[in-house]
Amino acid sequence: MNSIIKSVAGGAFCLPGNDIDTDRIIPARYLKCVTFEGLGVNVFKDDRAQLGGKHPFDLAENEGKSILVVDENFGSGSSREHAVPALTQWGVKAIIGLSFAAIFRGNAVGNGLVCVTVEPDVHKYLVNEINTGAFAVHVDLERMVVRAEHQWEGEPLPCAMPESHREMLITGRWDSLATALEAGNAIEEAATKLPYMALVAC
């Protein structure tokens, strides 16, 4: 059993651009490791170096923020799970985007990182709210809404995630290994029906 995640709230910031791949999130040279520790400092390393302090992950105003708003196809490319701890160790707790690459999304839920999608109009609205001083964004997984908060409470707008991911997070069962283990002997039974499962080194 993991912790139950029913909602996430925090300061929000935007990382514009479609197709931000996992090679950019964590360049391959930082995959030379045997644990996931210490990845956070190198998140977006090369993109940040190129922008000389102006990358959203470097701006002083974004320090301590935890809700990231991205565009389309975030996390595409390499399956490297390292991308998820790199983001969470920096402080990201939830990502709101137009779409996510499938493997990244699976890796995220396995680490309790919330990824929700929103429709383009909601996305545009959120980006605008954040750029005009909303101090927090609230992602509510029970009602599946996002809210931008100013001094007043913003309007709840719909967001989405695969129902199975939502259920895993709000019940604290995002440990898929534990769930798979519960099948017990049914696993071996399924295996005996497949002749190739008996194949060993020739």
């Binding site: 493997i103 699976g106 396995g110 680490n111 898929s176 290994l177 798979a180 099948a183």
Partner: peptide, 13 residues
């Protein structure tokens, strides 16, 4: 193609 948490799941289950 799978991530590392899923590798653990395939290894164990």
């Amino acid at each position: 193609g799978i991530g590392t948490t899923q590798i653990a799941s395939v290894l164990a289950t």
